[in-house]
């Protein structure tokens, strides 16, 4: 677990981060004033920070962008799971599926 003081994200403003947590863009654990972050949350904060400041995504557009990104990554996770499951099938089954997909 990582506290705000140890985040080391250049230019990150605490009040702004609190706003992101309130908006549920970041899902921190703990209570206001003593938030705790996991590594995945840190990466999330870094992402939102990049989107907000480097790429100038506005406050109002941010939920749309995050929602689309979350959908994209969810699909990629699912597709990775599916690919893994397919890879474990016997070659004939994979061949059959490939043939179907060519249609």
């Amino acid at each position: 677990m990582i506290a705000f003081e140890s985040l080391h994200i250049a230019g990150l403003d605490e009040a702004e981060l609190m706003h992101w947590i309130d908006a549920a863009w970041v899902r921190a654990r703990g209570v206001r004033g003593a938030w705790q972050f996991e590594e995945v949350d840190v990466a999330r904060i870094q992402l939102i920070h990049t989107l907000r400041h480097d790429l100038e995504i506005g406050e109002t557009a941010m939920p749309v962008v995050l929602s689309l990104l979350d959908q994209l990554y969810e699909m990629r996770r699912n597709s990775a799971r599916l690919n893994k499951a397919l890879a474990s099938l016997p070659p004939e089954a994979r061949q059959l599926l490939l043939a179907k997909l060519e249609r």
């Binding site: 899902r27 590594e39 995945v40 949350d41 990104l69 979350d70 990554y73 969810e74 990629r76």
Partner: peptide, 20 residues
Amino acid sequence: QAQGWRQYAETGPGERYSYS
């Protein structure tokens, strides 16, 4: 490159921010 969001989002930890 720092660990990007994608490294987390593409694997298990990313499910914390799952859309569904």
